[in-house]
Structure formats: structure tokens, C-alpha cells
Design a protein around this nucleic acid. Structure first.
Lengths: 107, 107
DNA sequence: CGACAATTTCGACGGACGTCGTACAATGAG
DNA sequence: CTCATTGTACGACGTCCGTCGAAATTGTCG
């Protein structure tokens, strides 16, 4: 059986516990913003290792944790790989236009 | 005559120099977010002293500087008072929906 | 079983950031 | 002129945050 007692239980805040402050703080880092852009471009689940950002994997894990706790991304564990996806529906429902506005910016 | 040589020249980035990263970083602080909310609610120019935030005036000055350098607010000097206003047009043009999405959040 | 691959966790370090108090400049009123 | 008002500039302090490397866990494949 899978012994995952040592792993963070993959906490995802429900929609009504998401705050705009946490979301903004999550998006306010260049690396995390790039992660969000790649997730938005992929339009599907993406494994951590596929993300192309100029930091170490442990740092990616850290950033994904912040994005997940803010409710920006959802994570699904499968074997040794963890698949991440954008919580577009929840974000659009709570802060309509926010994500689209961010993604519309030139870069 | 007005001797304003010692004052920061009230730099406002033109629309094409505004970045979504700077805007997000500016909005990612609770005090600054509250300032933006009050400016949006007022829908007119607001003097620094009128803003109701739980920090010192010098801190308010600091936050307004960050908001201004990010292109979120515009400042106009008149006598000893400085009037601040939201740069709604520029924000909506560059990041359509962003500001509205932020302001739509419950708080 | 043993080696390897995919990620996380932990501890540590350095820099960035929010906050304040004080001093200072400019304006307007008495 | 004098003084109160409005706001900025500067320096300092403590804390949060992004970053890394090394170690550990889990699953997969010979």
C-alpha cells in the first residue's frame, strides 16, 4: 500500500476559502507567473519536471506549493509524478477577468 | 515660487513600459490593495491623508510610490497636498479584466 | 532484490520588503 | 513672521521569502 504519511496531504482550498490576496501574492513572483503561463498554454495537466523555469526542482516544488495553497493550481498524484493544472473555473468564478487579464499581458 | 527640486519628480511609467509583474507585485500587499480599493470606491482623486490604512504616513508614502512606479496610480501635486487616482484606463487597456477581477473579490 | 527516476522535505543562507521614527521642506492661515 | 498642516526623505530594524544542496521517500523497471 502507499505510505504517504510523510507527504503534505495535497491541500487545496475550497472555492469559498480562496482570497484575492493569496492569489495576488502567488502570481507576484516571476517564476510562479511563468509556471502559470506554461500551465495555461498547455491547457492540460503538466508534470513538475516538464516545467521550464530557471530554478532548481526543489524550488519548483516550493512554488507549486504556494500556488496550490492559494488555489491557483490543482495537483494530482500518480505514481512518482505529480500532475498540475490551472484551476481556471474557480479563479474565473471568484475573480472574473483576473486570470485572463494577467495572461493577456505581453512578455 | 514652488521649489520642488528635492521632491521625486513624480515619475509615472508610460503605458508601454508597464509590466504585469510590477502591477501584481504592487497589488500583492494588503495595505496597497486597500488603498486601491479606496481609490476605486472614491472614483476621484484622493489626498494621502484621507486614506484610511493602519500604517504610518511615511509608510503610506512608500506604498503610494510603489503603486505609482508600477503604473497603478497617478499623482498630482497641488500645494502641500498630493492627489492620487487610479489609472483605470491604462490598466484596463493593458490587462483587461485584471483590475475588475481584483475589485470583484469579497473582502 | 537493486538500480534508477521523479519529487518532496529539511536546514541554511542572503537579500528583499514592510514598518517605524525623526528630521525636513513647502504651503497656507492667523 | 510664526506656526500648524501635509507630505517626503532617510536610516534602521526585524521578518518574510526565494534559492540552493543534500538526504529521504516512493514507484518503476530489469
Amino acid at each position: 500500500m502507499a505510505d504517504t504519511a510523510h507527504l503534505t496531504p495535497l491541500v487545496h482550498p475550497p472555492r469559498d476559502e480562496m482570497t484575492v490576496e493569496a492569489v495576488l501574492r502567488a502570481l507576484a513572483d516571476p517564476v510562479r507567473l511563468e509556471i502559470v503561463r506554461q500551465l495555461a498554454a498547455a491547457d492540460t495537466e503538466v508534470a513538475c519536471g516538464v516545467l521550464e523555469v530557471p530554478v532548481t526542482k526543489s524550488t519548483v516544488t516550493h512554488h507549486l506549493g504556494i500556488l496550490r495553497q492559494a488555489g491557483v493550481v490543482a495537483g494530482r498524484q500518480e505514481g512518482t509524478t505529480r500532475y498540475n493544472s490551472l484551476r481556471r473555473n474557480d479563479l474565473d468564478a471568484l475573480f472574473p477577468g483576473l486570470l485572463d487579464g494577467v495572461l493577456a499581458a505581453r512578455h
